[in-house]
């Protein structure tokens, strides 16, 4: 049992930060709690941010999508704002995160702030150029999600609160697919890949390849992205796809553990990246988002 001294409820992001800083002792934010209660960390108190008004999903008039940090993964799988963005790629990733009852309470923010290298939501959001919004008691800051993670279980947050992430409207028009490789149907990712492709006059533009579970933090395969940029996607792309997949495999830095070896993970980055690019190209040729599956 988690030996906590106190459980506090925050009514706003600012309140949450203030309650965390008030002490005494070590405090943590809690939202869904599905990670924290699993392996309870040593701390004195928690601040519940599930009532801090940061669970909203919203679209701006110009089509940007805002996902509140306390939105549950189940909400992300079902809400039309999310299922309609970038072919439902974010919903697809959320639907493969944990099991059904876990998704009812587990939150987007929890998945990101827990900062496991295998965080299921990170690659797809990075591939869609997510920006995260971070609240302090008196101001908010925004940074690209790809810069949010600083190491396994470490982020830039300190004692500030992640309030949500925003996805630009332009990213919503990309074709995007993500996939996680697992041992059984429902499992921690051995490897995760998300690919998003934009187009400009018959050529690839805004190419994003994001990788999870294959480095201390989720990352972009920048060289592979460059290799694909400006590709004429109506031509035969087979060799270019294979090259890009190979390059991406060279860009990751996986570990060997009891789940898989580094060698296997690296090769799976190649396999999944290749497959996802090819599938995205098919989607593009068919004239749009073919869905995320």
């Amino acid at each position: 049992m988690w030996d906590l001294k106190e459980y506090r409820y925050a009514s706003s992001p600012e309140d949450a930060v203030a309650l965390l800083r008030k002490g005494p002792g070590r405090g943590m934010f809690i939202a869904g709690g599905t990670d924290l209660l699993l392996f309870p960390p040593a701390c004195d108190f928690v601040v519940d941010v599930s009532r801090a008004g940061i669970d909203r999903l919203a679209a701006t008039p110009d089509g940007d999508l805002f996902l509140g940090a306390a939105a549950t993964l189940h909400t992300l799988t079902t809400d039309p704002l999310v299922t309609g963005f970038a072919g439902g790629a974010v919903s697809h990733a959320a639907a493969h995160c944990g099991n059904r009852p876990v998704r009812s309470t587990a939150t987007l923010g929890g998945n990101l702030c827990n900062a496991l290298p295998s965080a299921d939501m990170a690659p797809v959001l990075i591939a869609l150029d997510a920006t995260c919004y971070i609240a302090d008691v008196d101001n908010q800051e925004s940074i690209p999600l790809v810069d949010f993670f600083t190491g396994p279980r470490r982020t830039v947050l300190g004692d500030r609160l992640l309030v949500g992430v925003a996805l630009p409207a332009e990213a919503g028009r990309r074709v995007c697919r993500s996939r996680k490789l697992t041992r059984s149907a429902e499992d921690i990712s051995l490897v995760q890949v998300a690919v998003a492709l934009g187009m400009e006059g018959g050529r690839l533009d805004q190419v994003r390849i994001a990788l999870g579970a294959v480095a201390p933090v989720p990352l972009r395969a920048g060289l592979a992205e460059t290799a694909l940029t400006d590709l004429d996607y109506h031509s035969d792309c087979t060799a270019a796809v294979a090259d890009a997949a190979e390059i991406a495999a060279g860009e990751c830095d996986p570990i060997s553990d009891h789940r898989a070896s580094a060698e296997y993970r690296r090769d799976m980055v190649r396999v999944l990246t290749g497959r996802l690019i090819a599938e995205c190209l098919d989607d593009l040729r068919r004239g749009g988002n073919g869905g995320a599956a």
Partner: peptide, 13 residues
């Protein structure tokens, strides 16, 4: 109304 695993939900929540 949503199914949850009560073991990983804080009672206080």
């Amino acid at each position: 109304g949503e199914p949850v695993n009560s073991c990983v939900v804080a009672a206080a929540r």
